[in-house]
Design a protein around this nucleic acid. Sequence first.
DNA 1: GAGTTTCGTTAATACGTATTAGAACCTTGA
DNA 2: TCAAGGTTCTAATACGTATTAACGAAACTC
Lengths: 358, 358
Amino acid sequence: MESTRQPGGRGRRRPRQSDIARVAGVSQTTVSLVLRGTTVGMSLARETRQRVLDAAERLGYVPDPVATRLASADNAMLGLYSFSATFPTDVAHSYYPILVGVEEEAAAQGQDLILFTGSSRTGTGAGDPASVRRVRVADGCLFFGRHVPEEPIRRLVEDGFPFVYIGRRDEPDVPYVGADYVSASAGVMARLAAAGHRKVRYLREHDQAPASGDREEGVLRGARAAGGATAGLVVRTDGTDLDALLRDWLAEGVTAVVVEQTDTGAALSGLGAAIERAGLSCPRDLSLAVLGAPVGARGRAPGGGAVFSGFDVPMREMGRDAVRLLLRLIAGEEGVRTRRLLPCEPVAGGTVAAPRRE
Amino acid sequence: MESTRQPGGRGRRRPRQSDIARVAGVSQTTVSLVLRGTTVGMSLARETRQRVLDAAERLGYVPDPVATRLASADNAMLGLYSFSATFPTDVAHSYYPILVGVEEEAAAQGQDLILFTGSSRTGTGAGDPASVRRVRVADGCLFFGRHVPEEPIRRLVEDGFPFVYIGRRDEPDVPYVGADYVSASAGVMARLAAAGHRKVRYLREHDQAPASGDREEGVLRGARAAGGATAGLVVRTDGTDLDALLRDWLAEGVTAVVVEQTDTGAALSGLGAAIERAGLSCPRDLSLAVLGAPVGARGRAPGGGAVFSGFDVPMREMGRDAVRLLLRLIAGEEGVRTRRLLPCEPVAGGTVAAPRRE
DNA sequence: GAGTTTCGTTAATACGTATTAGAACCTTGA
DNA sequence: TCAAGGTTCTAATACGTATTAACGAAACTC
């Protein structure tokens, strides 16, 4: 690729501090001092300052983020690195609200966002250490995605580069902002028990992410607390025939199903379709609770336009909080709580009712 | 702020090329040549090369991406500036597929994206000239959003800053990648006429964007070509009572309605609701065509799960193509077609049928 | 009026890598 | 023996900004 800074022909080269210096009749150092805000002990004549500012304005100067960064300063840019595609192609892009929150808070804090792309490409591999290292052009970086290579993250920790993970992590020393899936999931089980359900099944996908493990732990904890039967509680959906599963459950006297909500939402949509195919209605024949309401699925519950019962994942707030935490880390603040779990809002919804009496 | 590069106390400084050079007993230049792969005309002794590689391996060298970018005069960063919020909060974020396309192509081309939020740091509005000028931190920039302040754009053109608008623009000298709404809309009218419709109405929102104007022009052109009645063809929805409108249309013998699809999709959803309230079915009682199928509205057509008839806006491809065009502009290529209109895919759909015979 | 402080500015350098223009040495051919 | 050419490497510099040390001039002290 041709150099950006030597555009052939018409296009003017982008102005740098030395250009301003020439126009204003001062040195590059002075320009830097004026634009950067004087360091302690430095003072500049008001008139000189104004001349520099005018020249900068006239030339349309904007600092080069890379050079600024190399000279070791902050450039008001936060990185955003996703281990899956940042903008997923399928409709159920469950991460979208996180982006909204990140953008909101970044804008409010006067930070721009650098979206690091290519993290999902097969060629370099998502966790390619060299790929992750790019994030250093930013002052700090947010990471998200369910599956994360540990090696590059460890490197960043060693180097002392400020970053925050969106979603709970097991590795020590990794700052994160996550959701308290354990409590929220236990709460869902408690509400099912309170509604009278004694035989409940938990449908989750085959997944190793912490977010999945936390939900399962919460469900099991809630089941124990409710004293209900827990044998065979958990079922994974890899290749399962959901229609057969549903029949078996009903035959066994299962009155409620808890479904994990993941990126794809495959388990939920699959089960919903099975319920409709069986000619059943929810919550009349079967109560349904969802752990983390799917973003696009409002009013899509089988057999009506009800909102799913369960809880809401505070994705937007996670995004916002992650930005705030990252900025404090960048600022080098002491005593910041670097591992945070946000509470999930319970959703009463319309897909859970008392079990039908035979 | 603490420097990232001086990890306090024990942590050893990251090795750089000069460290390798010292260990291997060569110059920094040689290290760079070895690690980067020799440039044309350069040759290195196999033995030297190996010594350097060994030293690099032993020291755990990883190139500093910031320095690399500064030295190669290529930040590999494209800007993305939206005149509305980059990540709209509401569900019908019709721009989303554009983002998908932009990210895909940027990743494929090894470019990162800088997202500008409009109101940054200065706290000024989205269209503020000072705000727009900030995009110059990137090598080039993509713009999108229906309503655009012209002044800052003109300024960028003057300065020769490479940028591409996503969506057609009227201003001369503004490179863009848009969709050919005129042809596509005319095509929809032609298909309606071919299906036997003689009395058609066009419902659009009150809007000044080129995308709206193009659709109207296409509809009118298509109507003329079909020789149908065009009097009172166009109706705008600002505050209109859609139920009354619908009644009138049916009384007049209107058999098909063409609806413009915009950001909000208000016209379409409003009309759909009116049709359902009137107890009518589509396409039995009224054919419905949409100019640019709404992203989230698949299977939401009134009275059934049909796909809307009309055309698809190739948003993803627009995003990809815009990135490609921008990179060619940045490279200073000559003879690039800088104003492109992409064809829209016709969608047969299920909401258009032959008019009902009385 | 010599010494000290303060003010306003700049020269020099650092950051880590890429690239260009040779230097030093060796081989070859006449 | 000398010029021509090739091979292997390095010195110097560029990239654009931040920072430190220092300098000249003016203002103050005694």
